[in-house]
């Protein structure tokens, strides 16, 4: 699971959960793979993500690098910044771990990089 995906996931479908976002990450196995840098894509994605959630997730996984606390202005021209975001969003992957619902503490296991967001029949 990449951090871009993590940024989009929630546990809001759980019975009794209101927001269910952001999910906490507990990682046992983290992998870094090189992905082709596409500055236009990263610049387009930044307004769609919750940047503070990305920072916290990257911090937790030890891959925050030189990411600043806030999105700087004129993102499109700031290649250094785009590269940092690119690395955190697409190159860092949780292979094994858990996503944890912030409200109920329910765990969603990640196996072979694939999060299992299925609920049990008593939770829907």
């Amino acid at each position: 699971m990449k951090l871009l995906t993590h940024n989009m996931l929630s546990s809001k479908s759980l019975k009794g959960v209101v927001v269910g976002y952001p999910l906490k990450i507990e990682a046992y196995d983290v992998k870094v793979t090189e992905v082709e840098f596409n500055p236009e894509f990263i610049a387009k994605v930044i307004p769609k993500i919750d940047y503070s959630v990305l920072i916290r997730a990257a911090e937790y996984l030890g891959h925050v690098g030189k990411l600043p606390g806030h999105v700087p202005e004129n993102v499109e021209k700031n290649t250094d910044f785009l590269k940092e975001v690119h690395h955190a969003l697409l190159e860092v992957e949780v292979v094994k771990g858990d996503l944890v619902c912030p409200e109920s503490g329910r765990r969603f296991p990640i196996t072979d990089g694939i999060p299992n967001m299925l609920l049990n029949e008593d939770e829907v």
Partner: peptide, 18 residues
């Protein structure tokens, strides 16, 4: 490079944030 992720999820109980 164009693969993001796949997740196990029930379509009726969306796991994507709104």
């Amino acid at each position: 490079d164009r693969y993001l992720d796949v997740i196990v999820s029930d379509f009726t109980k969306s796991a994507w944030r709104s």
